[in-house]
Nucleic acid binder design. Structure first.
Lengths: 199, 199
DNA sequence: GTCTATAACGCGATAGAC
DNA sequence: GTCTATCGCGTTATAGAC
């Protein structure tokens, strides 16, 4: 019975975090009140503090667990023995998959990371950012060296282009809509790799 | 003297709006207090209300004047008799020029339009958005019809790709940095038109 | 685990003196 | 055009009953 209680407590926690994540993503962190979260959960604001220290610790838990998951996926691509172009394709697809499956978390990270990152508590956001940049620069360098990518690319600018392009899609992509995340990834990779001009 | 007073009043207004715009862009509208703005201007918060009705009317004035300027530029491109590809290139360059010259305004629009647009007062933001989409869809349709662009493009998705790609650069572009806005536009157009893959 | 009640504080905005 | 002083409200968070 104590095991069940522990499990239900964890489930409730996750449920509350999921509700909070949706609100943070839609209205912004600062713009979402603890009363908003409590209302959406069908409880009163004071009751939230039985589960969490503060509103800040809620967004902290949301972001850090998402980041851990995302970077495990990056690591798997990096460690694989695919060729350079395939790795790039996989890394792009991985992003759209994250947008599909964790869109609230992606949106919160996109919208709030810069501001939250100024606080010491959220310093890991900037660290993960640097880590992600390192992954992409490696992939792009390998791509140019192997001849898969054009030699005249500005690698830093190309990295920013890809990073911005894939993640900003979280603003309009909706799971269950007309386009699957794999279809969007296909189109984006086509444009990214071969351009929109007539060959 | 009354003319000079009027002019100075206008200048002071513009100066205060410029200070507010920087703060809104950096910290977000909701996250910026009237005391922040007053502090940065070297006055007390109450004094701001001699110039403006409310914090909301400040961001309103910032966004509406920027939008008017931007869409005048779009109109000029549309009305020109350049060919389809040139018009697309000009529209892209125009965006990077706006990021260079009005980055705070662009950032505020990117970050806050969705949220502010829900209020009736800011309904024009959604209207301008629809207008901008119409411009781009026209340009892309013309591009495909004239053979300048690939025929297999998903026009709607391509529009979103371009829109997101050009505007999101406001997150990292800094005027006076290593890259001029024209150099960034050159690189982005190269990738957009011809892709990153080795030909 | 949730509710009642409230403390402590920061916020946008106002009124009137200078 | 700015300052002093303050109001009224919404917000995060706490303490203790149930």
């Amino acid at each position: 019975m104590s095991a069940q209680t522990r499990t239900e407590g964890t489930d409730r926690r996750r449920e509350l975090l999921s509700i909070a994540a949706e609100l943070f993503a839609d209205k912004g962190f600062k713009n979402t009140t603890v009363r908003d979260i409590a209302d959406a959960a069908g409880i009163l604001s004071g009751s939230l503090y039985h589960h969490f220290d503060s509103k800040e610790s809620m967004v902290d838990e949301i972001l850090s667990s998402f980041q851990a998951e995302l970077f495990a996926a990056y690591d798997e691509v990096l460690r694989s023995d695919d060729d350079a172009r395939t790795k790039i394709e996989r890394a792009v697809r991985l992003s759209f998959e994250a947008i599909d499956r964790r869109r609230h978390e992606v949106a919160i990270f996109q919208n709030e990371a810069d501001f939250l990152g100024q606080q010491e508590r959220f310093a890991y956001l900037a660290e993960r950012n640097a880590e992600s940049r390192a992954v992409w620069i490696t992939l792009l360098d390998d791509g140019v060296r192997s001849g898969a990518l054009r030699a005249d690319l500005d690698i830093e600018l190309t990295y920013r282009f890809i990073r911005d392009t894939v993640w900003v899609a979280v603003r309009w992509y909706r799971p269950g809509g007309k386009l699957s995340h794999t279809a969007v990834a296909d189109q984006y990779l086509t444009i990214l790799l071969d351009g929109i001009a007539h060959a």
